[in-house]
Write a protein that binds this DNA or RNA. Structure first.
Length: 273
DNA sequence: GCAAATGTTAGTCG
DNA sequence: TCGACTAACATTTG
């Protein structure tokens, strides 16, 4: 789940629950998700107050009263939850922050690709990890500057967090569909008009997804996402929602681009020459 | 039982 | 050293 809109939704959830609160315990149920040592994390976090939250791409930050930040990355299957009693802890809770109010905030991650770490600041982390501008803030000019000299496929470039941060697999498919650009187009063949369309589509898809709190089935019917098999309303193998929203007679193609499942409309997104 | 999965990154090869 | 590509990570779900 966690691409930019999900992470923004998690951030808002965390912001409401923990800003102003003091963390009284740092409970580790599975140290696999820790990218900073447990001792160091506990030392930084316990007794600190959370002064604010931030987000950059798919990373969520809790700003601590010590000046440091706790960085949450949710991997492929990360989520957040809140509970009060141990027996209500969500399944796959890996780490829990215990607040002075008695509430516990859970970092939930079945597949354990997510990570929790400590950083000196959001900016330091961004620099160290070479994370590009957030996809909601990048301008058409910046996008063009980073892509127009590249000789490789556009889709893997859009997934590269150092170019712009926050776009994941389904969002890139949706963006390319909305911008009517084939995912295997070579980046340096895009026209100015296509860069404009790309930028506009990024804004459209992200703001729409955040507005619906990343609940896919509430997205407009004009979105390609309804063709993805993991949409609740489309069972694998069925032909429900398998057609282009703009061309009811045209089936959506599924392919692999850069090793990732990729959905396209053959009419809207003509193949690269 | 088998296939697929929303992300990242280390390693390899030119 | 950089760019491009692939495999691997760990586990659940359909």
């Amino acid at each position: 789940m966690p691409e930019l809109p999900e992470v923004e939704t998690y951030r808002r959830f965390i912001d409401e629950l923990v800003v102003g609160q003091t963390i009284v315990a740092f409970e580790v149920k599975d140290a696999h998700v820790l990218a900073t040592s447990e001792d160091l994390l506990r030392h930084a976090v316990v007794g600190s107050r959370v002064t604010g939250t931030r987000r950059l791409g798919k990373n969520c930050f809790l700003e601590l009263s010590t000046g440091q930040v706790l960085v949450l990355h949710f991997g492929m299957t990360g989520d957040v939850g809140a509970y009060r009693d141990e027996h209500d802890a969500p399944r796959f809770t890996r780490v829990a922050l215990h607040l002075d109010t008695g509430l516990r905030v859970a970092f939930v991650d079945p597949r354990k690709f997510g990570r929790i770490r400590l950083a000196e600041s959001v900016e330091a982390y961004q620099k160290a990890k070479k994370i590009g501008p957030d996809a909601l803030n990048i301008t058409t000019e910046q996008l063009k500057a980073k892509l127009s000299h590249r000789k490789t496929l556009i889709k893997p470039l859009l997934l590269d967090q150092s170019i712009t941060a926050g776009l994941g697999n389904w969002i890139v498919d949706e963006v390319l569909f909305q911008a009517k650009i084939h995912p295997e187009r070579i980046a340096n063949t895009l026209t100015d008009a296509e860069f404009e369309a790309l930028h506009e589509a990024i804004q459209l898809v992200l703001t729409t997804a955040i507005k619906h709190e990343a609940t896919y089935r509430h997205f407009p019917a004009s979105f390609l996402i309804h063709a993805r098999e993991w949409d609740d309303s489309a069972t694998p193998g069925s032909d429900k929602h398998q057609f282009c929203p703009r061309h009811p007679d045209t089936g959506i193609d599924k392919n692999y681009v850069g090793g990732r499942a990729t959905y396209t409309c053959p009419v809207c997104q003509p193949a690269a020459q």
